[in-house]
Design a protein around this nucleic acid. Structure first.
Length: 185
DNA sequence: GCGACGATTGGCT
DNA sequence: GCCAATCGTCGCC
């Protein structure tokens, strides 16, 4: 057996640990290949401004989901980290599609496997992420999370699409994976 | 009550 | 590479 993911760790530790883990929603998903860490103390995080109605789940207990709407269009999925009341989490940015490929193709409206989960919004659509999942425990239905069975090589670099705290190298990815939202360099 | 602004994506130049 | 789509959240009047 592999070590379970410890969501009580700082988000950048969890983000690295999640690379190679298998995650599904209602049996649809695959291997996590890209994540980003966010922390209450840095300005790029939704929790930087303190607890609000939107980010409340991220101040909840570790090991739960934080789901938010991005640009009024996409549903994005985070795993809450650290501790109750802290305000840290990991954004799931890309997954290598493994199970439920046909369902994902139908939801996404595209055929090519590389376009199914190669970004936080795409992944949300492919896995059927809904706002109702906000605050739900990752150990409960419909979620299923299995830690990486063996160690994987992990790349890291600056986070994508943010304007603040761009210097933090808190984006992590499976080295050489063709399923990333963008390559590392 | 109102306006500015995204942890994005996809289509077009 | 650039830019529009699209709408809930948040801060401020």
């Amino acid at each position: 057996m592999s070590t379970p993911v410890n969501f009580s760790s700082p988000s950048h530790i969890v983000a690295r640990q999640l690379i190679g883990a298998t995650f599904t929603i209602d049996g649809v998903g695959g291997i996590i290949v890209e994540t980003e860490a966010y922390d209450q103390r840095e300005p790029a995080s939704h929790t930087f401004v303190g607890k609000t109605k939107r980010n409340a789940a991220m101040f909840g207990s570790p090991g739960r989901a934080y789901v938010y709407r991005s640009y009024g269009i996409h549903w994005c999925l985070n795993f809450v980290c650290e501790a109750e009341g802290y305000g840290a989490g990991v954004l799931i940015r890309a997954i290598e599609p493994i199970v439920g490929l046909d369902v994902m193709r139908e939801r996404r409206g595209v055929d090519r496997i590389h376009l199914l989960c190669s970004g936080p919004g795409k992944l949300g659509q492919a896995l059927g992420v809904k706002h109702e999942f906000n605050g739900m425990s990752l150990t409960e239905t419909p979620f299923h999370l299995t830690p990486a069975l063996k160690p994987v090589d992990v790349s890291c670099g600056p986070r994508i699409g943010i304007s603040k705290a761009v210097e933090l190298p808190w984006r992590f990815g499976m080295e050489g994976s063709p399923f990333l939202s963008r390559p590392f360099r």
